[in-house]
Design a protein around this nucleic acid. Sequence first.
DNA 1: GGTCTGACGGACA
DNA 2: ATGTCCGCCAGAC
Length: 94
Amino acid sequence: MTDGRPRAELVLERVRAIPEGFVRSYGDLSPGAPRFTGTVLSRLPPDGDDVPWHRVVRADGSLAKGARQRALLEAEGVPFRGERVDMRAARLPE
DNA sequence: GGTCTGACGGACA
DNA sequence: ATGTCCGCCAGAC
């Protein structure tokens, strides 16, 4: 059962597992296929409060959703370095 | 089924 | 630091 579960579901599950105040990169959620993670999140409903999509940032700490995403992250205490997240400190260890 | 696109990532110039 | 190229998965034409 290489596909006991759709990759999409696995990705969403990982996103929900990100604790407040931390972030993870697209590549971390879907190793080898970061674009897939983006596709999954893009299909998320606008009011998808069930999934903390804002805690998913690019590997270099830059944001995909701009100022809106940044506000949500800063509200959680995520350290920033200019317009990008300070991955060195906010990236979830594992 | 080939081709393009997308909330990407890493290598390289 | 900035821009280009290639690779990855899935969906739309």
